[in-house]
């Protein structure tokens, strides 16, 4: 009974916030509604007893990805009016894409799940995170390795895009040089006479 109430409460919040992501006038607000959608869906997952996935969703998407997203959106000066101009022109394409995604999701729901985990008897005592670890690193170790390689590739590409070592006039700070500076190299002590000699005749 109580579970049903919570389920519907979270679902309503989830659907409304997902709608607001598209409808909100301010881009920062839509990012915030997306955060709310993530948090409520993670609450729903917790109700399904998959605490590891739920907490990872919050940790990775809400705690890291969305913060960077928010960061970028705040920096941009987005003009909503110019972005709305192409609305009617792009509508047919958007509807087509939406239908394709809808059909895909329905197919996922209707067909049998691809991932089948055969739980052995000893696993019943293990916690949720332990079970996921076992499955990922035994049964599905190759897909995990593949996914991590793709991520590594993305990382290397991002570094390669911003690396400026080939430019000759790029300026860098060498921290070890900065730390190793001694006062003798910077300050020169100059002996001066305490007073200027008086000019004659004054």
């Amino acid at each position: 009974m109580l579970q049903t109430v919570f389920f519907y409460a979270f679902s309503i919040v989830l659907v409304l916030s997902a709608l607001q992501v598209v409808l909100a006038k301010n881009p920062v607000q839509s990012v915030l509604f997306l955060v709310l959608a993530f948090v409520t869906s993670s609450c729903l997952w917790i109700m399904l007893n998959v605490e590891f996935l739920a907490l990872t969703l919050i940790l990775v998407y809400v705690g890291a990805v969305m913060v960077l997203f928010l960061f970028v959106v705040m920096m941009l000066d987005i003009d909503i009016e110019t972005m709305r101009k192409g609305f009617w022109k792009n509508l047919p394409l958007a509807i087509c894409l939406g239908l394709v995604i809808l059909v895909e999701m329905i197919m996922v729901l209707v067909t049998k799940p691809v991932v089948v985990y055969k739980m052995s008897q000893t696993d019943a005592t293990l916690s949720n995170s332990n079970q996921i670890g076992w499955v990922l690193y035994t049964q599905y170790s190759y897909p995990v390795e593949l996914a991590s390689l793709i991520l590594l590739l993305g990382l290397v590409v991002a570094v390669a895009l911003t690396l400026r070592s080939s430019e000759k006039n790029a300026k860098y700070q060498d921290i070890s040089k900065q730390v190793a500076v001694s006062s003798l190299g910077r300050i020169e002590m100059v002996k001066m006479q305490a007073e200027k000699p008086e000019i004659e005749g004054e």
Binding site: E51, F52, L55, T56, V62, S127, S129
Partner: peptide
């Protein structure tokens, strides 16, 4: 069971 993960997840929201 996953209390450490919970702590890390929630404290990452503070930002």
């Amino acid at each position: 069971n996953a209390s450490l993960l919970y702590v890390v997840a929630i404290s990452s929201l503070g930002v």
